[in-house]
Design a protein around this nucleic acid. Sequence first.
DNA 1: GCGATATAGTTCGCAAAGAAACAATTACCG
DNA 2: CGGTAATTGTTTCTTTGCGAACTATATCGC
Lengths: 174, 174
Amino acid sequence: MHLPHFEDRIHAVCERHPGLPRQAVVVTRMIRFLSGAIDARLSQLLTGEGLNCSSWSVLMMIYSDRTGTVRPSSIGQALSQSRAHMTRLADELVASGWVERLPDAADRRAVALRLSSEARQRMQLLLPRVWALYEEMLGGLEPASLDPLEASLRTLLSHIEQLPPIEAGSGRQA
Amino acid sequence: MHLPHFEDRIHAVCERHPGLPRQAVVVTRMIRFLSGAIDARLSQLLTGEGLNCSSWSVLMMIYSDRTGTVRPSSIGQALSQSRAHMTRLADELVASGWVERLPDAADRRAVALRLSSEARQRMQLLLPRVWALYEEMLGGLEPASLDPLEASLRTLLSHIEQLPPIEAGSGRQA
DNA sequence: GCGATATAGTTCGCAAAGAAACAATTACCG
DNA sequence: CGGTAATTGTTTCTTTGCGAACTATATCGC
C-alpha cells in the first residue's frame, strides 16, 4: 500500500484545504491500515489451520473465558458481530471439531459453546505462533514507546466508546 | 464492546500462560477495535449521502490525486481491494453521478476515473464533516500525546510493510 | 397466574468483497 | 518484427457478514 504515497495525497489535499486537520486524518488512516495489515497477517497464519480471523476470535472468546463456556450472543456482542453470523461460525466450528454445543440447563433458549479437548490442545500449540506474530509486528518499535502507545490507544478507545451516536442527517438542517 | 471485559479476558489467559506477551496482544487488539469504531462512525455519517466507507475511499483517492484522474486498478492497489470490487464500485459511483469513466488515450486497456463537477462540490461540503468526525474521535487525547502516537503508528506501519510474507505451513516442519 | 414484552438462536435473503477465468491490449525479448 | 509474458477491466462464483422475520423461551407488570 506504500505509506509515502498516502502522506503525499494527504499533503495534496492540505494544499487545497487549509482547514484540514492533518494529524487527525493521518492518525485515523494509519490505524485503519494497521488493522488491515494485522488482520491480513493473522489470516495468513490461520489459513494453515483451516481457520480465519473471525473463527479464531470466537475460539479465543471461549478459550479466554474462565468458565470455559460462552453463549453465541455474548460472543457476537463482544466482537460486534450479528447473532446470525455467530450461528454460522458455530456451525462451521462444530463441523470441524473445534467446538461443541451444549444445551443450557438454566435457560432453555440458550446454547453454550465449549472447546473440544483436541481444540484446546491445538490452540495451545497455535497461541505461541500468534503471539510471535504480534510481537514481530510490534518489533519495529522502540520498547520505550510501547507504554505510551498502549496508554494512548486505551484512552482513545474509552473516549470513543462513550461518544454519542451520530444524529442521522446532521449537516442538512444545520 | 466494553474495553474492561477484554482486558479481563487477556488477564485470564495470562494466568494460564506465563509466556503471553500481554502488551503486544493488547495493542494489536486495541488497534483492531479502534479501526472498527472509526469505520462504524464514518459509515454512519456517509449513509446520509448514499455512500459507504469503500466508495468514500474511492472518491478520496480521486479527489486527492493531483491529476484528477485515477485508474481503478491503482485505487484497488492502494486500498488493498480487488479490481473486481473496483469495477463494481465504479459502476455504482457512475450510476449515482459521482464519477465519470473516460477512456485512456495512451493505454486502450485502461480507464480513467474522474469526479463530476457536482461531486467535487458535494465533497467540499462533506469533507469538513468527515474531518470533524476524526477530530472528535481523537479529541479524548491530550494534544501532547498526539505527536508520539503519530510517530509510533508511522514506525509500525513502515516496519510491517517491509516484513517478509509468512511462509505457508510454518510451525509444521520446524 | 397471565398477558405483554424481551431475549436466544435460527433461517432466509441481501450487500460487500475476493479469487479465478477471460478478452483485449501492452510490454518485453530474441 | 514476432511471440511470450504481463496488465487492465470485466464477469462469474464463492465467502463473509448483516438485517429482518420466526420460534421458543424467559421475564416483568399486574
